[in-house]
Design a protein around this nucleic acid. Structure first.
Lengths: 197, 197
DNA sequence: AAAAAAATTGAACAGTGTTCAATTTTATTC
DNA sequence: GAATAAAATTGAACACTGTTCAATTTTTTT
């Protein structure tokens, strides 16, 4: 832990804490102890814990983007979208605690404005889906297509918050991936059907 | 505040605090002060603050159910569903702080099991939609119809969490009701289209 | 009026995030 | 290399959480 990469070190340690012990475990003191420094050092690197969590989330978003980008597009754009969905659900379920940290932050930061760099990272994740989506709905007007795309992402993003909790357990044996698959394909089929009218 | 309705009184005061000052404002001490009692009294009525918040949410769910039940079904089941959607979005946007308290609780209660009475209240909200939904998709097998219905509710419910925050502000001028309307109708149209195959 | 039961209190405990004067470490200058 | 200046680190302290529980007050019963 040399001084020029304390930030990276803290973020890595923080990620480890979240992955191993859950998002609640990420507190200033526990992070300090795990990192072998004092709370003051953390506050020297980050204005506050919210900023730290944002830095953590930025890495999570980057990881998700890379995870999606690595998937090969199919010749069929529909299949490509399903592949992205698959990758997305896999990522969320495989990184439950980190994703909970991220979504929870979005909800908690209710009154504040999120900084540009953060919104940018979100957008970049959506951009991965964009070509395939545009290919499927090439005939729709750009304005509507943009909205349709946003709604698709928002619904998958928000539903993903439920995937990290046992809220769904109260609704019988619902398979989490099945939920997302149905949501995606019904939505896509619906857009296709609606545009013909 | 007589002793047999302290619970109701506390819940009412708590709701007032949340409505006027946001969900964060609801703490044991502030609730005690606003109610003219000590923290101990609150803990005499509720095992912990989580249970208090649950009692608060139960009332919110009941209010939502009543709000939806009061809406008149249209002869066209599609229109009925859109009417429910309208009522739902109106309720969420008109009770942002209370809805935030509710959704946030669902997310925070990640590891615990929610009690039956609470799940029941959730289910009763969904039940309102059920007849109209079944009317539209009478030809689908019950098993699939049940899943389709669940996914519809889950997506609307989860998207509603975003309606209580400014997360959407980063995505340009997206109208919140438009998002939900598109989501509902594309989804419904999609189910209709898919069942024909 | 006395005794028993029940409800209320609020100081105290273990946690949060956050601050900042004092200390230690590092870099610079002579 | 020693003395000085700058920068980074520390951790006790502050204000806030949820929660507990012995002591007090109130209510009910006898």
């Amino acid at each position: 832990m040399t001084k020029d990469n304390i930030r990276e070190y803290l973020i890595a340690k923080g990620r480890q804490l979240v992955v191993e012990n859950g998002a609640d475990f990420l507190t200033a003191r526990k992070l300090a102890e795990a990192s072998g420094c004092s709370v003051g050092t953390i506050y020297n690197q980050f204005a506050n814990m919210d900023n730290f969590i944002m830095a953590e989330n930025l890495q999570t978003l980057e990881a998700l983007k890379n995870h999606l980008t690595a998937l090969l597009p199919d010749s069929n754009a529909y299949k490509t979208l399903n592949r992205y969905l698959d990758g997305f659900v896999r990522f969320v379920l495989g990184n439950k605690n980190l994703w909970f940290l991220l979504y929870n932050f979005h909800l908690q930061a209710s009154m504040r404005k999120l900084p540009r760099v953060y919104l940018r990272a979100m957008i970049e994740v959506i951009e991965v889906w964009k070509p395939a989506f545009e290919s499927v709905f090439a005939s729709i007007r750009p304005r509507e297509r943009r909205l349709s795309m946003q709604v698709l992402w928002l619904s998958l993003f928000s539903v993903s918050s439920l995937l990290t909790t046992p809220v769904l357990d109260g609704m019988g044996n619902v398979n989490k991936k099945t939920i997302c698959k149905l949501l995606l394909n019904a939505y896509l089929a619906g857009l296709t059907a609606l545009k013909k009218d």
